[in-house]
Amino acid sequence: MTLFEIIILAIIQGLTEFLPISSSAHLILPSEVLGWNNQGLAFDVAVHVGSLLAVMIYFREDIWRLSLAWFGQGFSKQQSTDSRLAWWVIIGTIPAGAFGFLMKDFIEVYARSALVIATTTIVFGLLLWYADAKAKQIKKIEHIGLKETIFIGIAQAIAVIPGTSRSGITMTAGLMLGLTRDAAARFSFLLSIPIILAAGLFSTLDLVESPEAIDWSALLYGAAFSFVAAYACIYLFLSWISRIGMLPFVIYRLLLGVILLIFVFA
C-alpha cells in the first residue's frame, strides 16, 4: 500500500469502529470504488491496536475504577455500582465472543458480500432511527441490570454480520431499553474494549501462522493514524450525541447503503 492508502484506511477504521455507521461497509468501498488491494491481516491487527489504545486511554479512569471495584467486591454479596457495571461488561461480551468464534468461517465465506453489507447497513440504520425516535431515554448507565446486559450482549453478537455496526446495534439496543444517548454510547464503548482485544488476539494468532510479509512502517503508520482518528471520534461523539441525536448517522447509513447497492447491480 502507498502511504496515502495507509492513512485513509487507518482513519476509516479509527472512525467507523466507534461511530454507528459500520466499519465493514466502509472498508469495502476502497476496493469496490477505487480498486485498492486488500490491506492484509497484519494491517488489520495494527489498526485494531490503534483503536483499542484510543478507547482504553479515553476511558482509563473508568477502566481503573471498574477494575478495582471488580477485584475488590466482584465476588462479594455486597456489590457496588462499579463492580456490577464491571460484571455487565464481562457478561455482555460473552454472546458476541461465542457467536463470533462459532460463526467465523461461515461469515467469512457467505456474509462478506457487498449485497449483504448494503442490506444490513440500511436495515439496521432504520432500526437505529426507530430506537432513537421512539425510546424514552431516561435511564443512566448505572441503571443497567442483568436483563439489559443480556439484551445488549445478544445485539452485539448480531454485529458479527458485516454491515451491522457493532457500536450501532449496541446503541440501538440501549436506546430501546430506555437508556439515554450518552449512557447507550458509553456502555457500547466499554463493551468494545474486550471485543476489540479478543479480535486483535485472534488476528495476531492468525498472523503468526501466516506467510504474509510484514511491512513494519505500514503497521506503525496504520496504528498511529487509527489511534488519532478513534480518539477524536470518541471525544466528539460523546460531546455531541445528546444534542444531535442519531438521525445524521441514519441518513448517512441509508446513503451509503444505496451507493453500495448501485455498485452491486451496476
Rank of each mutant, 00 (worst) to 15 (best):
V264N: 08
Q39N: 09
G50D: 03
I154W: 06
E5C: 15
S165K: 01
A135E: 01
F101N: 04
G168P: 07
T164N: 05
Y110K: 15
V47P: 05
I144C: 14
I158C: 10
S76M: 09
S188D: 02
L254G: 10
L53W: 07
A266R: 14
S67T: 11
R166L: 00
V109C: 06
E5S: 13
A86H: 04
D44R: 15
E108M: 10
S24N: 10
G74R: 06
S165F: 04
F237M: 02
T180S: 09
S22W: 01
A213E: 13
L15D: 01
P211E: 06
L197I: 04
F202G: 11
L201R: 11
F99H: 14
Q137G: 03
L3H: 15
R186M: 01
R65F: 08
G92T: 01
R166H: 03
D82Q: 09
A159G: 05
H26M: 05
A96D: 15
A133N: 07
S203F: 11
S203W: 04
L126R: 08
I141S: 07
L41P: 00
F187D: 00
V264P: 15
F71Y: 09
S167W: 01
F265H: 08
G145F: 08
L207Q: 02
G178A: 06
L52W: 05
V264H: 06
S192L: 02
Y252M: 00
G163N: 09
S217W: 12
A157Y: 00
M176C: 14
G200H: 14
I28A: 03
A69S: 10
K147M: 07
R181S: 00
P248Y: 12
F99P: 08
I21A: 02
G163I: 01
I161C: 04
T180Q: 05
T93H: 09
I241S: 09
S203M: 13
I196C: 03
W36A: 07
L126W: 05
L260H: 03
K104H: 07
S76Y: 10
E17K: 04
M246C: 03
L34M: 10
L85N: 03
F43R: 06
F263D: 00
L179D: 00
G35Q: 08
T204F: 08
G50F: 13
Y252G: 00
Y235N: 12
L19C: 01
A96F: 05
Q78M: 15
G35W: 15
T119E: 02
F187E: 01
P95K: 13
